[in-house]
Design a protein around this nucleic acid. Structure first.
Lengths: 213, 213
DNA sequence: TGAAAAGTGAACCGCCAAGTCCAAACTTCA
DNA sequence: TGAAGTTTGGACTTGGCGGTTCACTTTTCA
């Protein structure tokens, strides 16, 4: 998408932003191009002008935009995660971010879930986002282990997978119940689990199992 | 749906079973009535004869059928859950059940997720299934607490919510990765978390934090 | 056994949303 | 200014899929 004038780029951006709000409210199959058209006061030809691939290309752009917002909301905690305090800060940032949303759909993974079989490219793209997210968690856990906060036998990759999948479940249930509590509970639970792998002599890891009940 | 002859009941059952396999492979929006028609060697009129409410009623029947299968696969563990051993048995039963499935969609919650906004009755039905499942987990945790295996300050309802949401996330990620590992990891993590709430003097609760790494 | 009720098959309808087309309007630059 | 290229609007086409209709067959039971 090069060769756009500033006006064109602004229009494209406007489409992505408005479409993101729409798709997060109604889901992929619930969002029609006509709704986007009225929502952005544009027209069909513009949609296909900026997204020649049609709806799936648009959804891809939306997923990328939403992913960047979600990742940004977790900074700077996500790129640290090398102490128990930073994990708590990350948990609080995630809960705070999703608390302020009015969207129905929150997890990009769940959003694309239902069209994944028919849109392999889209599925691969979202899968890459998930891998990156999980890798950020794993990197933090590796730093924790190397720093002596986690016992050497702990498996950072598997623990990261556990935290990530639990988080996704929290988002899914939060969505279906329209309540932030499942997300908060699942993140608290994940931190309790991680503390169970704290090194025995870890200075900051002594509070094992005493998270809020 | 009363007043069916045995042949009619068999036909209806055949439709539900075949449609269940189809919908678990392709998702709600990916499953068309024509596909069900050829898959069951029936016809449109039969579909609407047995399910006057159309597709959403059929999906409801499918959800009920699948829910009963999933719950049955967790017996007898799910109705006990009053010892650490029974929790481990439950975990193994869940993993074993989903290991043998070739379906793409596994979580009924995730399956109905994308049509929930447009089908409130369906959403309520699936929500009730989820509540029941979660309640079974909570009941087990209450028995654990009352039996002195969990510390009194533990909150069975919140812990059950955590386990349930984590499980859903495990299913979601398992689905997107086509790999059982996320589900296994998330359940192991949930058990580690629960052990962190074991009573200090609990005879069976001393292995806290030593789950497989 | 025969008529009413239940079960069955396939052609048909209509909606709705994705995608196409083309002409008008605007922007840019010599 | 005026021509080339880009952006915009809206009507049009297409097709898939949920849902309907109706004639035909089979079962049930007095």
């Amino acid at each position: 998408m090069t060769g756009l004038t500033s006006k064109g780029a602004a229009t494209r951006d406007r489409i992505v932003r408005a479409a993101t709000e729409l798709i997060l409210d109604r889901g992929v199959t619930g969002m029609t191009l006509d709704e986007i058209r009225v929502g952005t006061r544009t027209s069909k030809s513009q949609l296909f002008h900026y997204f020649p691939g049609g709806k799936s290309e648009l959804v891809g752009a939306i997923a990328g935009y939403q992913n960047s917002r979600v990742m940004a909301a977790q900074q700077p905690w996500l790129e640290r995660l090398d102490s128990w305090e930073s994990w708590q800060g990350w948990r609080d940032a995630v809960v705070a971010y999703y608390s302020n949303l009015t969207h129905k759909y929150c997890s990009v993974t769940a959003l694309v879930n239902d069209v994944a079989p028919t849109e392999p490219e889209l599925a691969a793209q979202v899968s890459a986002y998930a891998d990156q997210w999980r890798e950020d968690l794993a990197a933090g856990l590796r730093r924790m282990r190397d720093g002596g906060l986690l016992r050497p036998s702990a498996d950072p990759e598997r623990l990261a997978l556990t935290v990530f999948a639990s988080l996704q479940g929290g988002l899914l249930v939060m969505q279906s119940q329209d309540d932030i509590e499942p997300l908060a509970a699942v993140l608290d639970g994940a931190l309790v689990m991680l503390r169970a792998y704290a090194a025995e002599d870890g200075a900051a890891g002594s509070k094992r199992g005493t998270a809020r009940t």
